[in-house]
Amino acid sequence: MTVTLRDPTAEISGALRRRVPPPTSLLGVTVALLDIGKMRGDEFIDRLEALLAERGIATRRFRKPTNTRTAPVETLQEIATTCGAAVIALSDCGSCTSCSTHDLNDLDRRGIPGVSVITETFVEPFAAQCRAIGFDGASVVVAHPVQNRTTAELHAMAEVALPRILAALGVAAAH
């Protein structure tokens, strides 16, 4: 049966819970790079890792066993205790988008601001999942499809996405 609850707040902000504020700088912050376990995502993250390293930003890689489930609690705990921000990539399907949005929400509730990288086809599913769990999650959108790209093309996608990923993590464009 469909359940409808009534908002107990003053409704002076949106119905979605705002994400935890990102840090004002990533200096001294370790950024978790969570590979959702979908093919090709690791190549995107490889380039992202290198680009962040060039900017002096520390990163730590994590990988989910499968994109079709939410991340294991141990992984989320490990991220929350060792990192200060998170990038979750790369969702190019329905199950990955839903599960990675839950992961984004779970990390946010643990105090870790994050951003989910999704393909343009999954903008609305991401928004729908955010609405369903009441979370104003942050995303960065890249081109679709992903699976038939060359590695060089995936690296180029990471380069294009980088400024928006940094902005979502609170870093000004000039960083």
Binding site: M1, T2, V3, T4, L5, R6, D7, E11, A15, R17, N105, R109, A132, I133, G134, F135
Partner: peptide, 17 residues
């Protein structure tokens, strides 16, 4: 404002969320 949950959503978790 009404907040409608999905069929499989847990109403207690929804309040936490």
């Amino acid at each position: 404002r009404g907040v409608t949950l999905g069929d499989y959503d847990d109403d207690a978790e929804a309040c936490y969320d």
